[in-house]
Design a binder for these strands. Structure first.
Lengths: 137, 137
DNA sequence: CAGCATCCGGTTCGATACTG
DNA sequence: CAGTATCGAACCGGATGCTG
């Protein structure tokens, strides 16, 4: 997915001053962060926090996601070990998705972020309106 | 950004079962979530948690970000009321970016997510390797 | 220094069709 | 049901050139 790093200019000096090193482009955490904070990744983790779900259930609950994107997103999260995919060999196919132990950890943190935004959505939206009218008004 | 809601099919039934409603595409929280969890948004919030920074400083510390993207990202965060932009009318220009009160709240939650990933990056990477070799090996 | 306008290649994404 | 394959369309994002 993001395997070639295409060596940008060396960040050596700057790196020393950072608590972590996500800010350095070479940090592998960035890739994982991408998976977790991707458009549908956030919502998938959030949805799975409620428990195990089938593919079609997730597709229905996460409004607007396409089959392809959901599939792709779940695969990325599975690859990172956050999501467990369980396929029951029956016809028609029955596949269930759930969070792993580490998946629950990330998901909990994602949830806190999401919840905070939802609780404070009104002031935020007001700020946005004000900003917009300042710019174009 | 996402102002026209283009009424998707009514999600009434599904919505009742969700703690929040981010999972509904009509939810305005999604837009804000996008700004916060965007590729550079996460890193900008994370970087600003350390304090006030000038544009060029941010550009240097957030390795790999382009001028355009940083500018765009900061504007989005400013619009949502998370980032305060202070321009000093001198020549050459001097602009400082800092977090607002609400900005600190989101940033703290972003930080917790980022930190967890950084701390657990090794097991995650191992899981990924294992997954990859299972698929293609 | 801080940033916008423009161009343009690459990636992402959604719709559709198809498979096990 | 749970996906994969393919194909345009849309968007993202970087490079460049210009402004105050």
């Amino acid at each position: 997915m993001n395997s070639s790093v295409t060596a940008t200019s060396e960040p050596t000096l700057t790196d020393k001053f950072q608590r972590g090193n996500v800010l350095a482009s070479s940090c592998p955490s960035r890739g994982v962060l991408q998976d977790v904070t991707s458009r549908w990744g956030v919502l998938a983790l959030f949805a799975l926090l409620q428990g195990t779900h089938r593919f079609s259930e997730l597709r229905k609950s996460i409004t607007g996601v396409s089959e392809k994107m959901l599939s792709q997103t779940l695969q990325a999260l599975e690859a990172d070990g956050f999501v467990l995919r369980t396929a029951h060999p029956v016809i028609p196919p029955h596949v269930e998705y759930s969070l792993t132990a580490s998946g629950r950890e990330v998901a909990k943190r994602v949830e806190e972020l999401v919840n905070w935004i939802e609780v404070n959505i009104n002031p935020i939206l007001s700020a946005r309106d004000e900003y917009t009218s300042l710019k174009s008004g």
